[in-house]
């Protein structure tokens, strides 16, 4: 269960004399396990910021975030970090794959952090699912941008998190691969009864979600 209540984020004014910028404004959202939503909106409207707030990587200016019955504002940095490790999978807009680990090791990272045994089978399954099984031993620098994005998606799903946050997961993929990856995302969320939030500019991607929400320049979240 993920619940956002009256969530807001204010940014400092761009120049002295101007009023502070209200990026996110009174956002209420309830998502039940198994639910998978897409968020769309113009560039710079605060979609990534919203995901960061939910992940506990950023602190809200007002309002509450509850995940699995725990209020994020009551947790300290270590508590948030552990919560992220155990419950969340994050695909970042700039996908961030560690350069000194090969693909298998990159994907295995969340399993290691959660001390989950039987890693190899799961890692192989995930790499297979994103179509990179043959490249498991390769270094990130030997891969294309789209391939790296798939590694990031495999890494976000491998530990079967209760909350999957994906920021533009298909931005670098051709339509066919994008469709396959989005299907993987959706199936994985359903299979493990997780909550999924995907931020995207692509209508096709949005169409794979159960419902689509729109974040406007006014900082409010509407049903599309």
């Amino acid at each position: 269960m993920l619940r956002l209540t009256a969530l807001s984020k204010t940014l400092p004014a761009l120049a002295p004399g101007l009023p502070p910028r209200q990026l996110l404004c009174a956002i209420d959202l309830d998502l039940a396990p198994g639910e998978y939503v897409a968020i769309m909106g113009p560039s710079g409207c605060g979609k990534s910021t919203l995901l960061n707030l939910i992940a506990g990587l950023d602190r809200p200016s007002g309002g509450q975030i509850e995940l699995a019955g725990r209020n994020l504002s009551t947790l300290d940095d270590d508590g948030l970090t552990r919560l992220r490790a155990a419950k969340m999978g994050f695909v970042f807009q700039a996908f961030h794959v560690l350069p000194h680990l090969n693909l298998r090791q990159n994907v295995a990272l969340p399993l290691a952090l959660n001390r989950i045994e039987a890693k190899d089978t799961r890692v192989n399954e995930m790499l297979d699912a994103v179509g990179l099984a043959a490249r498991a031993g390769s270094r990130p620098r030997e891969l294309s941008g789209g391939e790296l994005q798939r590694v990031a998606i495999a890494r976000a799903l491998v530990h079967r998190p209760a909350l999957v946050l994906a920021d533009e997961p298909t931005g670098n993929l051709d339509p066919e691969t994008a469709e396959r990856v989005l299907a993987l995302l959706r199936d994985s969320i359903r299979a493990h009864n997780a909550i999924g939030i995907v931020v995207t500019h692509s209508r096709a991607a949005a169409a794979s979600a159960d419902r689509v929400l729109r974040l406007g320049n006014d900082g409010r979240l509407h049903a599309a």
């Binding site: 970090t81 994050f90 970042f92 700039a94 350069p99 969340p110």
Partner: peptide, 15 residues
């Protein structure tokens, strides 16, 4: 920086 930040984001504590 971004490598270390990624590790922090996916669950390595400050300590």
């Amino acid at each position: 920086r971004s490598e270390l930040a990624l590790l922090r984001a996916i669950g390595v504590t400050r300590g």
